[in-house]
Nucleic acid binder design. Structure first.
Length: 571
RNA sequence: CGGGGCGUAGCGCAGCCCGGUAGCGCACCGCGUUCGGGACGCGGGUGUCGGAGGUUCAAAUCCUCUCGCCCCGACCA
């Protein structure tokens, strides 16, 4: 491939729209261009990266016994109504009508479509297990698309669906996918971690997310520093405290706290600490309002609250509602004397004595409040986010916190979809059984973006070798005959031995070529200039650390053939 | 969805308050010099000033509507 003939519109300046490293660099390196919010065109170099990742995924999926098929991007509403997701999925589901005014949607995922196929075609236990996958464009009408390929509305995803005759088989299928995912992300050259996860909109019984570790990640994970436990904070369990305070209860007092609304303001004014304050957060649910109590320095975990209450929608109460329920503006809510509201509390605060709570009255807080005497809680439960320093729920040490980018997610679905859509088969006794399912996704574009978040410097991208758009970026520094001749012959011989080369044959100044090569981020650069040739050498340079090896032109091919160009499939 | 902001040349932006000739840098085209880390000189403007309506002798600029995009918020009690 010659740079002079390829569409690689590199940008000298940073585009205004881009925030994150991967978004900025993919735009600048001429790999993607935006078409609409969260919708991108993949230019030749960007597409090559996508294809490399897809190829690794295909090889590993096939090796794990899955088979590729391709489902349509548009699917009819009837299928979604069968599982109830036509209503439940909400606005993320992009809906439209055809000319006959029939309802359709763009597939955000394909459980319904695949389950429909399998229920029609699979009759017998002899046909199971089955694992089908596709690599295809998905559409989710995200509230707020951002960060380029990281959170687009239209994106390429590998999704796989397994069907087994029983739970045990399903667990085996799940484990195979888990193992395949470990191989896939390892081969992509990423630093990642599988973590226990919440099942979200997809539903099901259990799941793991594959997180690429990066500061810019949108997800927070916790993990046992020296142990094996790792989980998304959404999911991470927090153990009840071991010890209860032994302080003697003091009499309850009501104190003025003018203008102090936040935990910081209140604790500063009362000369205490957030650890001795119980904050009361009012939520509205479709059923009734709820007050959730957690320690002043903790964060409520919405998912845990939803699970406890058995509701799917949970919103922080607005100003008006708070006023109605507590009789005070936001900032002074407390459990004492709160009526018409269910009281639930995180089990951590049960251990407190003589704590601070809001007074349900403007500019007022209670101090030295105590359970039972002053407040009765309806339910105690694990309701907060895990944080650094908490003991691991598996007993294997202390938790630490990190940021991650979710590039893959595996779910044990159980029979949620197969039951709703009656995907059944006959077992050896002729009895009708419901297939047990699993589903497994990988964000292809997001994996590419995550690779950049993990591998870049001030000059540009530093692709991991297995997913780099090309192996070698060949820079012919001048238009002189000797440079062109050597470049041309090296290019040909490298290509013929299966090495991917991007040949910068443009009539540009050396500096432009160096900068573009560093920006695009091929792992190796082969630099051919008159200066070097005068001494009979060309330069072989590593993008990662700038290490230069000088070689005679006729040694280049041999040298290149020793490079680890692909972490081979045969491992 | 709520709050804030921005749409002016391919890209990054100024001009808008205070109405009157559409501008700067980069990119681009031509010629010449230069040529191993984003060169220089000379010449060239490539624009529905996001769109529609209104006010006005006159609108990028003021008003109304509309579309698109970006950022923040989903822990604040």
């Amino acid at each position: 491939m010659r740079v002079s003939q390829l569409l690689i519109p590199t940008l000298r300046e940073d585009p205004g729209e881009a925030e994150t490293v991967s978004h900025r660099l993919m735009l600048r390196a001429g790999m993607i261009r935006k078409v609409a919010a969260g919708i991108y065109t993949y230019l030749p170099l960007g597409l090559r990266v996508i294809r490399k990742i897809e190829r690794i995924i295909r090889e590993e999926m096939d090796r794990a016994g899955a088979q590729e098929l391709l489902m349509p991007i548009a699917s009819p509403a009837e299928l979604w109504r069968e599982t109830g997701r036509w209503d439940f999925y909400g606005k993320e589901l992009l809906r439209f009508q055809d000319r006959h005014e029939r309802d359709f949607c763009l597939g955000p995922t394909h459980e319904e479509v695949i389950t429909d196929l399998i229920r029609r075609e699979v009759r017998s236990y002899r046909q199971l297990p089955l694992n089908c996958y596709q690599i295809q464009t998905k559409f989710r009408d995200e509230i707020r698309p951002r960060f380029g390929l990281m959170r687009g509305r239209e994106f390429i995803m590998k999704d796989a669906y397994s069907f087994d005759k029983d739970e045990e088989g399903a667990r085996l299928s799940y484990q195979k996918m888990y193992d395949a995912y470990v191989r896939i992300f390892t081969r992509c050259g990423l630093t990642f971690r599988p973590v226990e996860a919440d099942t979200g909109l997809i539903g099901g019984t259990s799941s793991h997310e594959f997180m690429v570790l990066a500061e810019t990640g949108e997800e927070t994970i916790v993990y046992a520093e020296h142990g094996t436990y790792a989980a998304n904070v959404e999911r991470a369990e927090v153990l009840p405290p071991k010890e209860t305070s032994t302080e003697a209860p003091r009499p309850l007092r009501k104190l003025p706290t003018p203008g102090a609304r936040t935990v910081e303001e209140v604790t500063a004014m009362l000369k205490t600490t957030p650890q001795r304050l119980v904050k009361t957060l009012l939520y509205t649910t479709p059923k009734e309002p709820v007050a959730v109590l957690v320690r002043g320095d903790r964060a409520v975990n919405d998912i845990k609250v939803k699970t406890l209450l058995g509701v799917t929608d949970l919103q922080l109460a607005d100003q008006e509602t708070v006023m109605t329920l507590t009789g005070a503006p936001i900032g002074f809510a407390g459990p004492i004397g709160l009526k018409r509201v269910r009281l639930v509390a995180d089990h951590e605060v049960k251990a407190l004595r003589n704590f601070v709570v809001g007074g349900n009255e403007a500019d007022t807080h209670y101090v030295d409040a105590n359970w039972d005497r002053d407040v009765t809680i309806e339910r105690w439960a694990d309701l907060r986010n895990a944080s650094a320093g908490d003991p691991s729920p598996r007993g294997d040490g202390t938790l630490r916190v990190a940021r991650g980018i979710e590039v893959g997610h595996v779910f044990m679905l159980g029979t949620k979809y197969s039951k709703a859509m009656r995907a059944t088969f006959l077992d050896p006794e002729g009895k009708e059984c419901v297939a047990v399912m699993g589903c497994y996704g990988i964000g292809v574009g997001r994996t590419a973006a995550a690779a950049i978040e993990q591998n870049y410097d001030a000059k540009g991208i530093i692709w991991p070798v297995p997913i780099a758009p090309v192996h070698i970026h060949l820079l012919a520094l001048s238009q002189s005959a000797q440079v062109s001749d050597i470049a041309s012959s090296l290019y040909t011989s490298l290509i013929q031995s299966g090495i991917e080369v991007l040949w910068d044959d443009r009539d540009e100044r050396a500096g432009v070529k160096f900068n573009d090569a560093d920006l695009i981020g091929a792992p190796y650069q082969l630099i051919i200039g008159d200066k070097g040739l005068a001494q009979g050498t060309v330069e072989f340079k590593l993008r990662k650390d700038g290490t230069v090896t000088r070689l005679a032109p006729d040694q280049v091919l041999k040298h290149a053939q020793t490079l680890p160009l692909d972490s081979s499939r045969a491992r």
